[in-house]
Structures are given as structure tokens and as C-alpha cells.
Simulated scan of single mutants.
Amino acid sequence: MKRLDETARGVFTIAVTPFKPDGALDLHSIDQMVDYYAEKGATGLTILGIMGEAGKLSADESRSVIRRVVARSDLPVIVGVSAPGLAAIRSLADTALEIGAVGVMVAPPWTLRTDTQILGYYRDVSETLGDIPFVLQDFPLVTNVVISAETILKIVADCPNCVMLKHEDWPGLDKITTLRAASDAGARRISILCGNGGQFLPEELRRGADGAMTGFAYPEMMARVVAAHDAGDVDHAQEVFDAYLPVVRYESQPGLGLAVRKYILARRGAIAHDTVRKPGKPLSENTIRDLEFLVTRLEKRLATVHS
């Protein structure tokens, strides 16, 4: 499979990491999950991201997840390799590419504060990775690192192996517009895939994004929205999105979203258990009642639409 490049588009689903009720890694559920994402329209997978609980895995567990996903999937796989040190980033990146991943994703460490520091860091990342293509993860709500559009353009200009932006700034629609205006004017164009649970996907596509990179529990929604947009039917893209919006909104709650996502995925048969590894907490009974109401309502609405 060819390596990740600037032409990537579609839906690269951010995969959860399945665990058994005792917190052990659930390799069998990884197979189920990969099949589920493919069946629901994913064009690629991104593993070991923030919502993949990468920080809760040992190095051996991380390698096991990469091997299992790549062995099961015919889709291109991107691996999150963010770490405090460059040596750790390079080590996991080498492992990922040797196993069969097409590229890696790197988020900035929280210690970066100025544009100069951010640019210097990604120059170092680029040099460390060599010919390995990487995704710049721009998620200031979690990393606390604010990266301006101007700094992203400098990173893209200085780092030829930076081939994609995972856009998760919020508010950030104007950032997409600025980046696309720059590429239209001659700057190197890279792929832009967007996160934040898909909350702004229709608007992001209309601003020039190439698709989604997020883990909403109904990946078929994102696939259908992107397909409708690419076909020029922006009204239908919005209508599809609107049907799922109550669940998108509920899943997007900070600190609760991953547990909500895993509950729905388990309910849909994508994984065997909805376990969030400690210190993550299970959902309360009241939250489950909320979810069941929303999911049942969504299922009825979709049944009416497709009948």
C-alpha cells in the first residue's frame, strides 16, 4: 500500500481501542471493529489517537494494536505516535511503518507556547521522521497549543513530509478558509481532514476540507455527508448530518464523549464491551437512559427515511 500523501480524502475514522471488562486489551474486538468501520464507509483508519486511549497503553500493547489492525484491514492506517521525546516518536513510527501503516500523526506537546517554538518543534519532527509522512494534529482544546494558520503554512513549507492537517481547532472554520486561500495562491496544498466528533463537518467541507478524521459512532453519517458534498449536493449533505445531530452533540461532551462513543459502538456490535480503561469512568444509568432515548429516536427516523 502506498504511503500517505497530500491527496488523501474521505473518512479516516479515529478508532477506539477495545478493552475487556477487566481492562485487558480485547484483540478479538479489534477485528470486529475494523470490519465495522470498513462496512460503514471508512476510507482509512487512524489508531492510537487521543480518543484511542493511546496514553493508557504500554509500548507492547501499542505494537499489538498496530499489528492487529493492519493485519485485519485493507484500508490505509495512520498511527498516532505523539510522545514527549523525539526518540520515542521515531521508534513507534518506524514500528508502525514496518508493520504496514501508511503514515503517522503527531500532536504538539503542551509546553509549546510561541509560533517560533511550534515551528521549531515540527521542523525537528520532520527531520526525525525522515521520509515518513506525518499528520499535524491541531487540537488546541486538548493540547493547549494554539497554532495559527500562518504557522501551519510555514510548517507545510519547511516540512515536505507533513502531508495532512487534522483540523480540530474550535472555532476554526476561518482557519480552513485561510489555508485554502493560501494554497489557491500557490502555497503547497496538503490534505485537511477534520475532527471534533464531526460537529461542523458540513461547514468544514464547504470551507475546503477534504473529509473527516474523527470517531463518531456512526461513521456512515460522515461517509454519506462527504459523498453528497463531493457530488455537489450540499443540501442533501446537510440533511443527512441534521438527522444525526442530537447524537453528535451528546457524544461531543468533554470528559464523557469516549464512554458515550464506546457504549454506542458496543450497542451496534462493533466491539464486545464498552469499557473505558481506568481512570476513565463508566456511564451512569441516567446517561444511558439519555442515550437510549436519542439512539432509539435516531433509528426510528432512519427507518422512516429508508422505508
Rank of each mutant, 00 (worst) to 15 (best):
Ser126Asn: 03
Ala149Val: 01
Met164Arg: 08
Thr151Pro: 13
Pro160Arg: 11
Gln137Tyr: 09
Glu168Trp: 12
Ile132Arg: 01
Leu136Glu: 00
Pro133Asp: 12
Cys162His: 06
Asp124Glu: 14
Asp124Phe: 04
Cys162Trp: 04
Thr128Tyr: 13
Val145Met: 08
Leu153Arg: 12
Val156Asp: 06
Val142Phe: 13
Ile155Ala: 01
Thr143Pro: 08
Val125Asn: 02
Val146Tyr: 15
Pro160Tyr: 14
His167Phe: 01
Ala157Trp: 09
Gly130His: 11
Asp158Gly: 01
Asp138Gln: 10
Pro133Phe: 09
Asp131Pro: 09
Ile155Leu: 07
Ile155Tyr: 00
Ala149Gln: 00
Val135Phe: 00
Asp131Tyr: 11
Asp131Ser: 13
Asn161Thr: 06
Val125Gly: 04
Leu141Thr: 14
Leu129Ser: 07
Pro160Asp: 10
Val145Thr: 01
Ser126Trp: 05
Asp131Ile: 10
Leu129Pro: 07
Val163Ala: 10
Leu129Gly: 06
Lys166Cys: 07
Ile155Ser: 01
Val156Lys: 04
Leu153Phe: 11
Leu136Tyr: 04
Leu136Lys: 00
Leu153Lys: 13
Thr151Asp: 12
Arg123Glu: 14
Val146Pro: 06
Phe134Met: 01
Thr128Ile: 11
Asp158Thr: 09
Val146Asp: 10
Met164Tyr: 04
Pro133Lys: 07
Thr151Tyr: 10
Val125Asp: 05
Glu127Gly: 08
Cys162Ala: 15
Asp138Thr: 10
Cys159Asn: 05
Pro140Met: 09
Asn144Pro: 05
Glu127Val: 12
Ile132Lys: 03
Leu165Gln: 06
Phe134Tyr: 15
Gln137Trp: 02
Thr143Trp: 05
Asp124Tyr: 00
Glu168Phe: 08
Pro133Gln: 13
Leu141Pro: 00
Ile155Asn: 06
Ser148Gln: 06
Ser148His: 08
Ala149Trp: 02
Ile152Trp: 06
Lys154Ala: 13
Leu153Pro: 07
Leu165Ala: 03
Cys159Arg: 04
Ala157Ser: 15
Val125Ser: 02
Asp158His: 15
Asp169Pro: 03
Asp169Ile: 02
Val146Leu: 13
Lys166Pro: 03
Arg123Ser: 09
Leu141Trp: 04
Leu129Glu: 11
Ile152Ser: 05
Gly130Gln: 05
Asp169Ala: 14
Asp124Met: 11
Phe134His: 12
Met164Ser: 00
Ile147Gln: 01
Leu141Tyr: 05
Ile155Glu: 01
Pro140Asp: 05
Thr143Tyr: 07
Met164Leu: 15
Val125Trp: 05
Pro133Leu: 12
Asp131Lys: 10
Gly130Met: 10
Thr128Met: 13
Ile147Leu: 02
Thr128Ser: 14
Leu136Ile: 12
Met164Gln: 14
Leu141Ile: 08
Val156Cys: 13
Val156Gln: 08
Val135Cys: 03
